[in-house]
Simulated scan of single mutants.
Amino acid sequence: MTTLLEVSGVSVTFDGFRAINNLSVQFAEAELRAIIGPNGAGKTTFMDIVTGKTRPDEGRVIWGERNISLLGLSESQIAQEGIGRKFQKPTVFEDQTVRRNLAMALKNPRGPFAVILHRKTAQNAARIEEIAEETGLSDQLTRTAGELSHGQKQWLEIGMLLAQDPRLLLVDEPAAGMTVEEREKTTDILKRAAETRAVVVVEHDMEFVRRLNCKVTVLHEGSVLAEGSLDHVTSDKTVIDVYLGRSDA
């Protein structure tokens, strides 16, 4: 399978604390991956580096078939390359309808005349309906985002990212604050999205990760500690010691 993103030998230190320590990890196109690990393991810093928010002290971050170095790009340039990020707290336009939120997020031409000349098109309308269907919001399109439940706002933000047609979607703790039913629906949304792009999910909820049924990367002290299926990594003695807790404790 073709490598979409390669992080190689990356390290970053904040005020003497090494948040990422010689991290090397690869992600393929159209794959679903979960990243787990204790607090301070480097999960958020990893996403910050990939999206250009944090510059590492050393290492390489290579993107796509053209082998572009993301380290030389700005956050907006990285987003334009096709990397989308969803933070833990949903950020939607609460006073706008769900349809309008999705419409504003659609990937359309950008330029001095593009916004002026842009009109609602049948293609855009169809894409909005398609995203709403994917995210379970078809019957919510006319509601304002502020009226949605926490879970629905999360789905709307995922939908807004999908509207930008990213090749890689980074999702931070989507299960936080959700009901059991919402968590189940969220795993379905992410699994479907991963059929056509890479989706990387940072999560603490092990049941949520189990339902994703995907490859798992365990981070500890800024490095990869273990990788494989959830059953494989959760049976690893070192993972149990540093993250899951001793079974005989």
Results as ranks from 00 to 15, higher is better:
residue 178 M to P: 10
residue 7 V to E: 05
residue 205 D to S: 12
residue 21 N to Y: 10
residue 39 N to Y: 06
residue 95 D to S: 15
residue 91 T to M: 12
residue 182 E to K: 06
residue 217 T to V: 12
residue 48 D to H: 02
residue 9 G to H: 01
residue 78 I to C: 07
residue 141 L to T: 11
residue 5 L to M: 06
residue 61 V to H: 10
residue 48 D to I: 01
residue 236 D to V: 04
residue 52 G to P: 07
residue 221 E to K: 11
residue 122 A to H: 05
residue 122 A to Q: 14
residue 108 N to H: 09
residue 68 I to N: 09
residue 1 M to F: 02
residue 223 S to E: 13
residue 94 E to F: 10
residue 71 L to T: 10
residue 161 L to P: 04
residue 122 A to W: 01
residue 107 K to M: 11
residue 165 D to M: 11
residue 13 T to Q: 12
residue 113 F to N: 07
residue 4 L to D: 11
residue 55 R to T: 14
residue 144 T to N: 02
residue 248 D to L: 07
residue 236 D to M: 00
residue 216 V to G: 11
residue 104 M to C: 13
residue 104 M to W: 05
residue 20 I to H: 06
residue 8 S to F: 03
residue 180 V to N: 09
residue 116 I to F: 13
residue 120 K to R: 03
residue 51 T to R: 03
residue 164 Q to G: 14
residue 209 V to C: 03
residue 39 N to R: 00
residue 171 V to Q: 07
residue 183 R to C: 14
residue 241 D to F: 04
residue 244 L to W: 03
residue 120 K to S: 13
residue 220 H to W: 00
residue 78 I to A: 05
residue 57 D to I: 01
residue 125 A to G: 03
residue 196 T to P: 05
residue 66 R to D: 15
residue 150 H to E: 11
residue 34 A to C: 12
residue 118 H to Y: 07
residue 85 R to N: 06
residue 198 A to K: 00
residue 10 V to K: 01
residue 229 S to P: 12
residue 173 E to M: 00
residue 45 T to G: 06
residue 218 V to P: 02
residue 188 D to M: 08
residue 152 Q to M: 08
residue 13 T to G: 06
residue 11 S to Y: 01
residue 37 G to M: 00
residue 123 Q to H: 08
residue 45 T to V: 14
residue 174 P to L: 08
residue 182 E to M: 07
residue 183 R to Y: 02
residue 64 G to P: 09
residue 223 S to I: 02
residue 165 D to T: 14
residue 86 K to E: 10
residue 243 Y to I: 06
residue 127 R to D: 10
residue 242 V to S: 02
residue 234 T to M: 12
residue 14 F to W: 10
residue 49 I to A: 01
residue 206 M to H: 06
residue 220 H to K: 00
residue 70 L to F: 05
residue 32 L to F: 04
residue 157 E to W: 01
residue 93 F to Y: 13
residue 8 S to Q: 13
residue 210 R to E: 15
residue 81 E to G: 08
residue 125 A to N: 10
residue 102 L to E: 09
residue 80 Q to E: 15
residue 82 G to A: 11
residue 73 L to H: 10
residue 246 R to S: 15
residue 40 G to C: 03
residue 206 M to L: 15
residue 163 A to E: 03
residue 101 N to Q: 09
residue 207 E to W: 01
residue 56 P to F: 00
residue 142 T to W: 00
residue 188 D to C: 02
residue 226 A to V: 05
residue 237 K to Y: 05
residue 205 D to Q: 12
residue 109 P to G: 08
residue 219 L to I: 05
residue 61 V to G: 10
residue 77 Q to V: 07
residue 205 D to P: 10
residue 234 T to Y: 01
residue 93 F to L: 13
residue 244 L to I: 14
residue 19 A to V: 12
residue 216 V to L: 03
residue 63 W to P: 03
residue 142 T to C: 01
residue 62 I to T: 15
residue 118 H to R: 15
residue 116 I to L: 14
residue 157 E to Q: 04
